[in-house]
Amino acid sequence: MSNERLKSLRSKDLVGIAPLEPGEIQLILDTAEELLDIARRPIKKVPTLRGRTVVNLFMEPSTRTRFSFEVAEKRLSADTLNFSASGSSVSKGETLIDTARNLMAMAPDFIVMRHPNSGAPHRLASMVEASIINAGDGINEHPTQALLDAFTMRRHLGRLEGLAVTIAGDIRHSRVARSNAYLLGKMGATVRFAAPASLMPLHAETLGVEVHHRLESALEGADVVMMLRIQRERQGNMNFPSLREYFDFFGLTPERLELAKPEALVMHPGPINRGVEIDSAVADGSRSVILDQVTNGVAIRMAILYLLSGGHGEPTPAS
């Protein structure tokens, strides 16, 4: 990648961070920067996607991500259709092709898709003309979350390159951790995963990260500390013994946070389990940028919708 600034994304879809080039990530972040402004105006809406249709296809429960996408869509004046089928008979058994055909009958321009199984948006993307935006697939990727995380880091710390970012929690089942590892690695940051090995994917180093089995060593000198939600249903399920013991060893307390750099950011993709992975004093503390993440998420999702809304196909030569 040269210094030449990219002007477009290469794919019609955003299925993950893995296929993106650093220049594309840069473009999304830069575009989001200009879109943040819209939330501060009296009229928080631009006509860019007027008359265009976005289907929010959520095959797994989600409030925050769906909300964030809906706000982004509405601020760009798109028409939104919500299709939720979490855990019901519809999600089980209906094939992706059937889903795709049903959706295409509504002629959407975008499909924002959350699915409990990895790779589902990738498959759907190859079946439909609409742009697919992955809002989280199984344990694979959650690209918009990683982008908003990086955006938040860049806005607070001025850069991504050279940052040490500690991500702690249930890494094995976390698409957020994986997308962040891909993104931050591509942008020159160092990522440290911290979790007991029972919550760490096998060969996690493959993702270009440092692997830590204790939180303390991972926190030392960190610029960013990102805590992942611990699913209560995983306790006692052979993953770890109890929430109590988890917090005892892996919870982010004010004392442990002292190990990180004094200006280190505290992040969390939400929803927070207070007293499980993060102490309230830290979550609500001065270094917490958790609410900024929410605001920034809208701008990132607007940026992606905007960048994917151009015509597709071969780029035409400069006219």
Binding site: R5, K7, T31, E34, V46, R52, L76, Y306, G310, T316
Partner: peptide
């Protein structure tokens, strides 16, 4: 920056590229 209000962004645009957003 008038980009988000232009009448030639989106599907009408022949090129693959969307105009870059600039500061307002």
């Amino acid at each position: 920056d008038i980009t988000l209000y232009r009448d030639d962004v989106g599907p009408w645009r022949p090129a693959h590229e969307q105009p870059l957003l600039k500061e307002t």
